[in-house]
Simulated scan of single mutants.
Amino acid sequence: MWFKNLRFYHFSENFSLPENFEEQLAEHSFHPCSRTEQSSFGWFSPFGPDNETLTHSVGNCWLLCAKREEKVLPSTVVNAQLDEKVRQISEAEGRSVPRKEKQNLKEDLIHQLLPQAFSRFRLSWGYIDLDRQFIAVDESAANKAEDFLGLLRGSVGSLPVRPFSPSEAVEVYLTDWLQKQDIPAPFELGDEAELRSPQADGGIIRCKQEDLTRDDIQAHLTAGKQVTRLGLVWQENLEFILEADMALKRVKPTDVLLDAKDDLVDPTPEEKVDADFALISGEAGQLFDDLKKAFE
């Protein structure tokens, strides 16, 4: 288990877990889709399907996992059957089928096909840091992270969180750092960036595995382009891409961190999750502290 993305959400008021936290989560635990459901989303044990425990803590950090099932109905299949149904009605009744009736027919077809559909499953991870008063969610898309927060909000009744963001636009900071080649410690410049023109019809420059201090990149910045994505290395331990909405994507440990990690011999699933979460929460917590300082 490793968080490949980090979206930080800061509590707007002091938050503590309710005494019956596990029971509240259990009321919203994952259940497989019924024959008529197109999707299902609920809490799932971090230790896998053979465990009923829905939380795991290391210190004052609490790990959560949610599971989603979605029935896969290819649009080509639905539309093909819909076209055939519309053709039959037109020939039998000698009339065209209006749009609203087509929509009702489509909904009926989906309802009929759902029991035959394949299921797609995915896990969504996040954790609560009560000491630092934030939630970190491992989702690349903001709407998926909001789904996770929505499930948690529905479970505990109230969740006063807001996305972590600086007072100025993130692009202003990233552009200034790259233009001055002055990255706040303990961050270092990576080898990937995206530069965009502020004009709607302006150009986009994407650089991967490049020396970002090159003169031609500096020329684009001088011409007015802004940095909207920037590769960074933190404390020689983590590499990631920082996005304009403060999402950290493609987070991965460096060899320095992996070499320092204690490898367990034949760990149980519980021991593996505990060791991974201890590492993740420890590193991400310190990273959050340094991000706050860098964007003051």
Rank of each mutant, 00 (worst) to 15 (best):
residue 282 G to P: 01
residue 83 D to V: 10
residue 232 L to Y: 01
residue 267 P to Y: 07
residue 61 C to I: 00
residue 90 S to Q: 13
residue 267 P to I: 03
residue 26 A to C: 08
residue 255 D to P: 04
residue 101 E to W: 12
residue 58 V to L: 02
residue 117 A to G: 11
residue 234 W to Y: 15
residue 33 C to T: 06
residue 230 L to P: 04
residue 154 G to R: 06
residue 253 P to G: 04
residue 57 S to L: 09
residue 189 L to C: 04
residue 85 K to F: 08
residue 137 V to F: 04
residue 1 M to C: 08
residue 30 F to L: 05
residue 131 D to P: 01
residue 201 D to G: 06
residue 181 Q to T: 08
residue 10 H to E: 14
residue 288 F to N: 01
residue 79 N to S: 04
residue 74 P to E: 00
residue 223 A to P: 08
residue 20 N to G: 12
residue 90 S to V: 06
residue 283 E to A: 09
residue 269 P to H: 03
residue 96 S to Q: 15
residue 231 G to R: 11
residue 182 D to I: 07
residue 288 F to L: 06
residue 67 K to I: 05
residue 227 V to I: 13
residue 47 F to T: 02
residue 149 L to Y: 03
residue 55 T to M: 05
residue 191 D to I: 07
residue 192 E to S: 12
residue 52 E to A: 11
residue 6 L to F: 13
residue 95 R to T: 06
residue 288 F to Y: 15
residue 86 V to A: 13
residue 234 W to Q: 00
residue 158 S to P: 03
residue 53 T to L: 10
residue 263 D to E: 14
residue 170 V to R: 02
residue 42 G to V: 10
residue 242 L to S: 00
residue 190 G to T: 04
residue 70 E to D: 13
residue 126 G to I: 01
residue 51 N to S: 09
residue 267 P to V: 04
residue 240 F to P: 02
residue 119 S to N: 05
residue 217 I to G: 02
residue 168 E to H: 12
residue 3 F to N: 01
residue 220 H to D: 09
residue 180 K to M: 09
residue 222 T to E: 11
residue 272 K to W: 14
residue 54 L to D: 00
residue 75 S to G: 09
residue 195 L to E: 04
residue 122 R to N: 10
residue 74 P to L: 05
residue 111 H to G: 10
residue 122 R to P: 05
residue 112 Q to L: 07
residue 145 A to I: 03
residue 168 E to M: 13
residue 138 D to F: 02
residue 137 V to R: 01
residue 4 K to S: 14
residue 165 S to L: 10
residue 104 N to F: 11
residue 36 T to G: 08
residue 193 A to K: 10
residue 77 V to H: 05
